[in-house]
């Protein structure tokens, strides 16, 4: 369980997060939605340690993690898949995967075993092992990014706008990979611009605006709320990406 308690954070020009209080359930998929600039990605950055909050606490299973470095957060079991372009394109897929295990680099046996396990779940990391990551297709890159985040066996995975810039078909790959991950017992906290996509995939939905949580509820409930549709979805027809409708 992750608990944000009145978290404030920003990049120098005022706080982007204006006191976020939020509880993220174990072993579920939670999706944060909200307009651009609401602070969704910033929420992930403070949790993963890329940005230090100026106030408030973040507890992971009761232990504070808000003052830790990214490496320490990762060691505590929280891995983040960065936004678009997070692979090291000039390194091979294998080197990328090895770096996913950077923290356990001294435990050769454990690292090797873990890479073999992941290769079974995501075959592309074996079939394209010696290709530069930049040469993979968009969908394959996403899969490798997901697999890389799983090397250290994290209990929580953070996804930062996983569908940004992806075409509908690759979105399906992301959809399925996220479910695969969750079925392996991983807690997923994701941020998504594509509201329908995110809430279809998630169990819980969180709506943020202007650096605060407006409300949190089961995802299907949020999807059905008419006022939500008016506020965030526009008056769009009832089709959406994952189902492949145009």
């Amino acid at each position: 369980m992750i608990e944000f308690e009145n978290v404030r954070a920003g990049y120098g020009g005022g706080d982007v997060l204006q006191g976020v209080t939020l509880t993220v359930e174990r072993a579920a998929i939670t999706c944060v939605v909200g307009p651009n600039g609401a602070g969704k990605s910033t929420l992930l950055r403070v949790l993963s340690g890329l940005l230090r909050p100026s106030a408030g606490t973040i507890l992971l299973d009761g232990k504070p993690v808000h003052a830790l470095s990214p490496a320490e957060v990762l060691a505590a079991g929280v891995a983040q898949v960065p936004q678009q372009g997070g692979l090291f394109g000039n390194l091979t897929v294998r080197d990328n995967m090895l770096l996913g295990g950077y923290l356990i680099r001294s435990e050769r046996g454990r690292l090797k075993k873990r890479l073999d396990e992941l290769a079974e779940a995501f075959p592309v990391i074996t079939t394209r092992a010696h290709d530069k990551a930049a040469d993979l297709s968009g969908g394959q890159r996403r899969i490798v990014e997901f697999a890389r985040a799983l090397v250290t066996n994290p209990s929580v995975v953070l996804l930062d706008e996983p569908t940004l810039g992806l075409d509908p078909k690759t979105c399906e790959v992301v959809f399925e990979s996220t479910q695969t991950m969750n079925e392996l017992g991983v807690t997923v906290l994701m941020v998504e611009q594509n509201v329908r996509f995110g809430l279809k995939l998630a169990h819980h939905g969180v709506v943020m605006e202007r650096g605060q949580v407006l409300f949190a509820a089961p995802a299907d409930e949020l999807l059905a709320r008419p006022d939500m549709a008016a506020l965030f979805f526009g008056a769009a027809p009832e089709t959406s990406h994952p189902e492949g409708g145009l």
Partner: peptide
């Protein structure tokens, strides 16, 4: 165009080879 079978095939359909194990369980 949005109902053209060739478009659906290439853009939305199934020619993108999903890794078998990443498909829905």
């Amino acid at each position: 165009v949005s109902t053209d079978p060739a478009v659906l095939e290439a853009y939305l359909g199934d020619d993108f080879v999903l890794e078998p194990t990443t498909g829905p369980r």
